[in-house]
């Protein structure tokens, strides 16, 4: 990875939160909660609408490849997704139109006995809704290992 990419910010992109996508995602994680499906359910009425599940925005983290391409990874088979974090500022509802923007927070190095020299990149994606409110921040940690990790 290219350490000079740290600190870079990338152009914003649009993410439409569609009701069908929310249901599809909830189905895929086996979650039958009506808050992800039925606007007339007591759960959705209490929540103020059909909610996005907590990990839904994972779906849109690869919408733009700008940030990952800026890392200039030589061989993706040496890359491990180490960690994924979400900060929830406001609810996201079906029908919301979000604007996402990615930033490479840091690229650091670490020595590992099992995997050789590690480079650790943190990419932060910040999402605002159509009212300009910050709704969520997603942070993914990508680790480039010095050698392939065998099981």
């Amino acid at each position: 990875m290219d350490p000079s990419a740290a600190g870079k910010t990338f152009p914003p992109y649009e993410v439409r939160i569609e009701r069908g996508k929310i249901k599809e995602f909830a189905d895929a994680i086996g979650d039958p909660n009506p808050v992800y499906r039925d606007p007339d359910s007591p759960a959705a009425k209490a929540a103020g609408g059909i909610l996005a599940p907590p990990t839904l925005l994972r779906t849109f983290l690869y919408e733009t490849r700008d940030a990952v391409e800026a890392l200039k990874v030589a061989d993706w088979s040496y890359i491990v997704h180490g960690e994924q974090e979400f900060e929830y500022h406001k609810p996201i509802y079906a029908g919301d139109v979000l604007t996402g923007q990615d930033r490479i927070v840091s690229i650091t190095e670490k020595e590992s006995r099992r995997a050789g020299k590690l480079q650790i990149a943190v990419i932060e994606s910040t999402f605002h809704n159509q009212r300009g409110e910050k709704v969520q921040v997603a942070r993914r940690t990508l680790i480039e290992t010095g050698k392939r990790i065998e099981d």
């Binding site: 209490a46 929540a47 909610l51 907590p54 990990t55 491990v80 997704h81 974090e85 979400f86 929830y88």
Partner: peptide
């Protein structure tokens, strides 16, 4: 509860 989470970190 729905909408209760403020932060979630998943480590693989």
């Amino acid at each position: 509860g729905d909408g209760a989470l403020r932060r979630l970190r998943i480590r693989f």
